[in-house]
Amino acid sequence: MQNVAMDVSFWILQCLNALQYAMLLFLLSVGLTVIFGLLNFVNLAHASLYMLGAYLGISLAALTGSFWWALLIAPLLVMGIGAGLYFTLIARLRTAGPMNQVLVTFGLIFVFLDLVRIGWGDIALGLAAPPALSGTLHFLGINYPSYRLFIIGLGGTVMAGMWFILARTQIGAMIRASVENTDMAAALGIDVSRLFFLVFCCGCALAGLAGVAAAPILSATTTMGITILIPTMIVVVIGGLGSLEGAILGSLIIGFIDVFGAVLMPSFSALLTYALLAAVLVWRPHGLIAARG
């Protein structure tokens, strides 16, 4: 009986681990996928914004002495950087074709990588979780770090908020209409370019938010952008570029595959996500949930 209880709590813990990783991936991939859905733009520099979020968050936390201020301000700063990028590069590249977009934003990754090295150095930096969330919470017979529960909650809130905005508000209806058919939406009197800008900024802010939120667990390193880029792209591509449901589904799949791969078949865990990505694309070349028919 004791053993069974041990086992159950072990699996509950692992499910929470998977869920927490999935939520972090979701925060990152949702911005990427919505920007693609709406602007038809593949923004690889999204990963750099995530990195900037973490570094700015750490500096802000040191400056204000509070994690919460960092969590609030850093995404706004990242949003500002995103807005700057939009006016200088992104708007200009809207019609340049996906290949050129991939290349320019890939170039941006290099630029941001060295800018961060110059600004913050090569040594990895840590950020302490806020005191209120630094302990563990006891429930269902297990102890789980409160901060990780907070991330699950944060991801869930963003998920619910996104769904609400897209499904229940006027602006959501406008976004959906524009994803479906940009020309038609413009003909109906929607200011498409303003809508694009708004969505792009929100996506960037979410990347920054993910960066700050991840810093207490994963710390900030100069390579964190490039490292997270691959799993994020995998999530987005598996789910189907441009689809909110796809980002949710993709995040959960990768989160659970990663954690349960590590638990059940550790020798193959490094291969699993790639194998899954290849399999999904061969089976469904446009991802599990294609954004457009």
């Binding site: 813990l13 692992q14 998977a18 490292t227 590590a262 638990v263 550790p266």
Partner: peptide, 15 residues
């Protein structure tokens, strides 16, 4: 643990 890829060790820590 996979080198350079593992950032979250929670699954291994739990184990």
């Amino acid at each position: 643990t996979p080198f350079g890829q593992t950032k979250d060790f929670s699954a291994y820590l739990t184990k």
